[in-house]
Amino acid sequence: MKCVFVTVGTSFNELNERMSAQESLCIFKSLGYSRPTLQIGRGTVVPEPFSTEFFTLDVYRYKDSLQEDLQRPDLVISHAGAGSCLETLEKGKALVVVINEKLMNNHQLELAKQLHKEGHFFYCTCSMLPGLLQSMELSTLKCYPPGQPEKFSAFLDKVVGLQK
């Protein structure tokens, strides 16, 4: 049983709607994702959670931390916010980033575009998402190496004159 976690951040109705539409649920089923979880923020489109023998749709607005929900899934579908993109990549999860076309000039897109250019996740708009889900090859994604804060501390120790 594979899990997929969808996170929209504060509000992204178009994605809520697209993800809970019959078309998407069918795609999830056909790909073997039988446990989709949607984090919908304060969106006004509120999908109805349901559970059958072979399929469970969970829906919630917010949690203090997404850590737990990012631990489980085999695939994460996220808005372009830097925090959730980086957290997902650090956990080594396959990621699809969905761009909100209404926020095209947001500076957070700088990071998403760069990480996409480096091949760490797939990147699309809401309308392209169903097509992408069916055609994407997760094995082509490049893993995301951890950052190196030790380089920062070494630099700082040197410039402030710290004696070892």
Binding site: A82, L86, H107, Q108, E110, L111, K113, Q114, G147, F152, L156, V159
Partner: peptide
């Protein structure tokens, strides 16, 4: 010491 955020790639 100022560290620009990882989010700032080009500007």
């Amino acid at each position: 010491v100022y560290v620009e955020s990882i989010c700032r790639v080009e500007t």
